[in-house]
Design a protein around this nucleic acid. Structure first.
Lengths: 131, 131
DNA sequence: ATTAATGATACCACAATAGTATCCTTCTGT
DNA sequence: ACAGAAGGATACTATTGTGGTATCATTAAT
């Protein structure tokens, strides 16, 4: 069970780097070493965040990425939602055939409650908390 | 992010089935239909639980599996631990090289706290709760 | 002996994750 | 105008994890 994957990890570091850098934009090349991942990979990740409206992007020479919101308004749950997709408790939720048995459904209800609380926790962590 | 996988799901159903059945042992063949998974697969899963001491196993004709403890003493966290392995927050924990940056470490500490609470939650759910 | 059960392994198929490579487009500085 | 530096988009590959099957050995009841 992995709570967050590498994409989210790298993204978090990059966002922290950008929040600290007192510049209008930061290029991937500038972040590469600090984040510890190859340029093409990081670019791909940040592009997703740009599409999701979490980052601004400036093309062309001297361009780069910048936070589209203040650090306290970017939540870990945002990154997880964009880079990992929605949480899947178990396959009961999607394959109804498996859910005819009472025991299994009880499990599902229990896990749904767990999921709600887990989401609330990663919702409470913002980029500001990581500075 | 998947909180529990199919193995755990199937295992939970099988354990509930065994807890309900008022018999010394229950064979995989008897559980197959109710759990909704093929015999060989379920057997493999239950063998792991046997090795882990969660189930008793009786070989030979008329044999089968049985709970090794009372339902309230078998926790969802036990199943997760055996069938999914330990939780990995992110790779920071295992690849120290990635952990030189303060931001990343803050993330790790935050996630460690989340993990602790999540484990406490699945620790609180027992087979008895699923009956 | 036969049969019904688990024990142990090895194997396979598919999907997800992690990472790379390539080419295109846009912008800036000269 | 043009060269170079940046992101945009896409396709590809490699590794791992998940889910599932097959096979043979072992044990015990009848």
């Amino acid at each position: 069970m992995k709570l967050i994957n590498r994409d989210v990890d790298y993204a978090a570091r990059a966002l922290v780097f950008m929040a600290r850098a007192n510049k209008p934009t930061v290029s991937v090349a500038q972040m590469e070493a600090s984040v510890g991942v190859s340029r093409p990979f990081l670019r791909k990740t940040l592009q997703k965040l740009h599409k999701a409206g979490i980052l601004q992007a400036v093309k062309g020479k001297g361009g780069g990425f910048a936070l589209a919101r203040t650090p306290q308004n970017i939540r870990l749950s945002d990154l997880v939602a964009v880079l990992q997709g929605p949480m899947k408790l178990n396959d009961c939720l999607f394959d109804k055939k498996l859910c005819q048995h009472h025991g299994a459904c009880l499990l599902r209800h229990k896990m749904a409650a767990v999921e709600t609380r887990l989401l609330a926790e990663i919702d409470a962590i913002t980029v500001k908390d990581l500075l």
